[in-house]
Amino acid sequence: MGKRFDGRVAIVTGASRGIGLAIAERLVSEGAKVTLTARKPEPLAEAVHGLGGAENALGITGKADDEEHQAAAVAETVATFGRVDMLVNNTGINPAYGPLIDLEHGVVRKVFEVNVLAALSWTQQVYRAWMREHGGSVLNISSVAGLRPAPGIGLYGGTKAMLVHLTKELAVELGPDIRVNGLAPAVVKTKFATALYENKEDEVAANYPLRRLGVPSDISGAAAFLLSDEASWITGQILVLDGGVTLKGGV
C-alpha cells in the first residue's frame, strides 16, 4: 500500500472505536499522524496503543461539542505534530428513538449540538489554526438517514441532513484550498448501530442488494480516498456507502 499521507496530520473525532478508529487506522497505515478524540480515556488509550503509540497517534479526551476541548485538541495537535492537514468529523449521537412529535426539546438540542454544531466548530478551529494558511481536507460522516425520511431515527436523520448541507456550503466557502466532502453510510456493524441490527442481522441484510451490512473497513477506504490528493477535484460531494439499500428505498 502506498504512503499517500506521508508527512500529513489528521484529527479524527469520535475515534476510539468503530468507523472513526477504522479511518484512523487506514490513515496511519498510509503514513499519517493522527489525533484521536473521544469521551472515555481507557478506550482512547487502547486505540492510541493499537496505532503504534505516541509515534503515530495522540489521544485527547473530551466532549466533541465542548469548544474548549476542540481548541485544546487542535492546539496540541499542531504543537505535537506541527500541522493539521485533515479533519474527520465522525462524532455522532442518537439517544432518542421514536417519532419526532414525542421528543423533548432538550434531547433535540443536544443531538443537534453534537451532530451538527460540533462539526462546524471543529472545522472553524482547524481553519483558524492551520488550514486557512495552508489548505487541507475535511470529511464529514453523515448517514443515509439524512438523505430521506428515516422513521424511528428521524431526529438523527434530520441532523445528518443538516450535516450534508453544511458540507456543501463549506465546500463553496472554503475552496479552492480546502476541500470538504462527506460520507453517507447505511447500517455499519459497530457498537453505535447495534440497535438497528442486533438479533436480526440476516433479516436486515436481506434488504440490501449486496446481502450484507457494512463493516468499518468499508468506510475507511472511501474516507482515505476523499481525504487524499487523488480526490483533488472533488469537493462538496456526499458519497453513499450503502450496499445498495437506498436503491430499494431503505435506510
Rank of each mutant, 00 (worst) to 15 (best):
Q237S: 14
E169P: 02
K160C: 01
A47Q: 00
P41I: 06
M162C: 14
R128H: 11
L21M: 08
L213H: 01
N115C: 07
Q70H: 11
G53D: 13
D242P: 00
L139P: 02
N94Q: 14
E198Y: 12
E55R: 12
A222P: 00
E68Y: 08
R211G: 00
A10Q: 04
V164H: 15
V188I: 15
Q237F: 09
R211T: 05
P151A: 14
G249C: 14
G146R: 10
L183I: 12
G20R: 09
E203P: 01
V240N: 03
E169F: 14
G152L: 10
G59R: 07
S143P: 07
A22C: 11
L120A: 12
L196H: 07
R4W: 11
T91C: 09
K191G: 15
L239A: 14
K168V: 11
Y197F: 14
S143F: 04
L183D: 04
A224E: 00
A205Y: 06
P149T: 13
L147K: 06
G214S: 10
G243C: 07
A79F: 04
A10D: 01
W130G: 03
N115S: 09
T246F: 05
P41G: 04
V172Q: 01
V88Y: 00
G31H: 01
A224R: 00
L226I: 10
V48S: 01
V126T: 09
L166Y: 05
A119P: 03
R148L: 10
T13M: 05
D242S: 04
L227D: 02
G136P: 06
L241Y: 05
D6F: 01
G157S: 11
V215Q: 15
I19R: 08
S217C: 07
P209E: 08
S29N: 08
V48F: 00
